[in-house]
């Protein structure tokens, strides 16, 4: 330590900017008030909230990637996944919540893409929290109206002859796209295949990686 610092601070450092510097918004105050009331009334506890956040944090596209890779290597699993998505992901230890999972398969003739035009329904148990763009009015209104233009903005150009099938999650189903296994991956192990499966390829706005990401 510098010799001059070996004393009680005679001067003040400017405070570091903090996330709570700006005044709280109407909805932040509303949330806080309702949360405090619900805890005070014993509807749930602070511990319940923390545990729920822990569950959200444990969900990520890594889980969806495992599901897709298993379907690529195991045709019987793939058949079960397409027949009943919820049951098939539970086989891999991924619990669905109250919603049901429908898995839709990309083929050389059909490309699937998922949207929720009404709000932001998303298959959280297999993909985690949705990206901000998924919740934007731009994505929600245009994916259903001009899906090919939206896909092009994500860098996805479909060959002629491929039909685009949009899935609007308006109610109690959640959708996951089963992308096509990239060409040239025949020799790859299931775990390596899972790393090719990106979040966006399971929403359907892009295709899986063609090869593993290598460190630069």
């Amino acid at each position: 330590m510098h010799a001059d610092h070996d004393h009680v601070h005679p001067h003040r450092h400017p405070p570091q900017p903090d996330v709570e510097d700006t005044p709280s918004t109407y909805y932040q105050r509303l949330e806080e008030a309702v949360r405090e009331l619900l805890i005070a009334k014993g509807i749930f506890t602070g511990e319940d909230i923390r545990r729920t956040l822990e569950i959200y944090d444990s969900q990520s596209p890594v889980l969806g990637g495992k599901v897709v890779a298993r379907a690529w290597v195991d045709p019987a699993y793939k058949a079960r996944l397409l027949a009943d998505g919820s049951k098939a992901v539970e086989e891999l230890g991924i619990p669905m919540d109250t919603t049901k999972l429908v898995v839709v398969e990309n083929t050389p003739a059909v490309h699937n893409v998922i949207v929720c035009t009404l709000c932001s329904c998303y298959p959280r148990p297999v993909l985690g929290l949705p990206p901000d763009w998924y919740k934007s009015r731009n994505y929600r209104s245009r994916t259903v109206r001009e899906p090919r233009a939206v896909l092009a903005e994500f860098g996805t150009q479909l060959p002629d002859g491929v039909d685009v099938r949009v899935h609007d999650s308006t109610a109690d189903m959640r959708y996951l796209v089963l992308p096509m296994r990239p060409a040239g991956t025949e020799g790859m192990e299931e775990a390596a295949l899972a790393e090719l499966v990106t979040r966006d390829s399971m929403i359907g706005v892009s295709l899986p990686r063609a090869a593993p990401v290598t460190a630069p």
Binding site: R165, V166, A171
Partner: peptide, 29 residues
């Protein structure tokens, strides 16, 4: 009862730019 209903995009949007086989699936009660 809930259904998944498939619609032809060309019928949903009169000026739809895409292929005739393009569809949108919507869950409807």
């Amino acid at each position: 009862r809930l259904y998944r209903v498939r619609f032809r995009q060309a019928e949903v949007w009169p000026d739809y730019q895409g292929q005739p086989g393009d569809t949108v699936d919507v869950e409807i009660y």
